[in-house]
Design a protein around this nucleic acid. Structure first.
Lengths: 201, 201
DNA sequence: TTCTTATGACTGACCGTCGGTCAATTAAAT
DNA sequence: ATTTAATTGACCGACGGTCAGTCATAAGAA
């Protein structure tokens, strides 16, 4: 008989081999021919493992997002004040150049899932949202038990997620200073930060 | 000589004649040929008045957004409680079917401006943001002078805008109940709503 | 062991579609 | 008649996606 390849594995390998290509070119300037060349296979072979271009890009982006989620979980478990956890939670995608490259891809992902109503992609987004809410709830709960958060203040994780989404989207605008916006928002939730000591040292 | 047409006016007319077409098909499924046919002109003529497809779509969307801004201003000036103004501010794009069609186009606009870094489009987005902030500030200020808002609570308009952006984006997810999310968020800002009277009648 | 054959893996030439271009045409003003 | 703004649709190149055909190997027959 003929060779039987592990479709799942090869699919993942193709995706992995094109991560850098995607970061470099962005979604719209990424062609199937490029992907095939980079993966070292024929153009037609791509379609043995993926439905369409969207499917490939989605697969690659999935790998980025799950890494991001891992880092968010680390933050939620870190031994730092609650307010700082939240700051890092929001700021994680902006804090350095690598993060910003990932941010760009995440924005492109949002753009696609905003226009193409592919069921699979929506489901994935919903799972992400659930995960974000879960992590945020962990942060909020430990904040309440530690007494940092007023139990009656009723900060909702889902509101925080919406703020975070808005932050990602509006960060494209030069008039939106991400760091400042996060501070302002946290000030609304926590009250003005007592000392600005952190800022100058 | 030959006829001198009013370029600005014709440009606007082409855009206006294609509003319905855009609402119907969405950006990606809207072709230049369709636009030309609908506007009753040749395909090449399009490019006398627009740089590219993006430019046309942008022009059409601009008309929608400025209408939306007008409605937001009306809300800010309405004679209703501050909290209700904010609710309508956020809910305006979701409250009926026409609004939802406009929402879809707005999402597509976000998607484009999220990926294509065209200067003109970014500038327009920044102007929108400024306008939203201005309107929200008017709402907040009258709320403070009327005593509905605690002057020290320090709600920031820009935070509200970010929440609103997030709402638009995440509203695509079936797990995001827009109305509920707005209520939850307002509860965080205003404290739990005293009576739920409004809900049942 | 060697040969045959079945079949999944793979390929790139090809297709349809689309955004965008441009040489040719039209028609108004002089 | 000449000039020139305005208009046009045939055409182009690039792209995502398809498919008829090729290749490589495992399994069975000799």
């Amino acid at each position: 008989m003929a060779i039987i390849v592990n479709k799942e594995e090869k699919r993942r390998n193709i995706a992995l081999s094109c991560r850098e290509l995607l970061l470099e070119h962005g979604i719209d300037n990424l062609t199937i021919s490029q992907i095939a060349r980079t993966a070292g296979i024929g153009k037609g072979t791509i379609y043995e493992y993926f439905e369409n271009k969207e499917d490939i890009v989605f697969e690659i982006i999935t790998t980025f997002i799950s890494e991001h989620e891992k880092r968010l979980e680390e933050i939620s478990r870190a031994d730092i004040p609650t307010r700082e956890k939240l700051f890092h939670f929001f700021y994680l995608l902006f804090e350095n150049e690598t993060a910003k490259r990932h941010l760009n891809i995440y924005k492109e992902f949002l753009a696609i899932s905003l226009t193409h109503e592919a069921k699979e992609m929506l489901e994935f987004s919903e799972q992400c949202r659930e995960k974000f809410i879960m992590i945020l709830n962990r942060i909020l709960e430990t904040g309440i038990t530690s007494g940092e958060l007023d139990g009656q203040m009723q900060i909702s994780a889902s509101s925080l997620v919406l703020f975070g989404t808005g932050l990602v989207v509006d960060s494209r605008l030069s008039t939106c200073d991400v760091e400042k916006e996060i501070e302002i928002f946290l000030n609304t939730l926590f009250g003005e930060r007592e000392s600005k000591s952190r800022e100058k040292k």
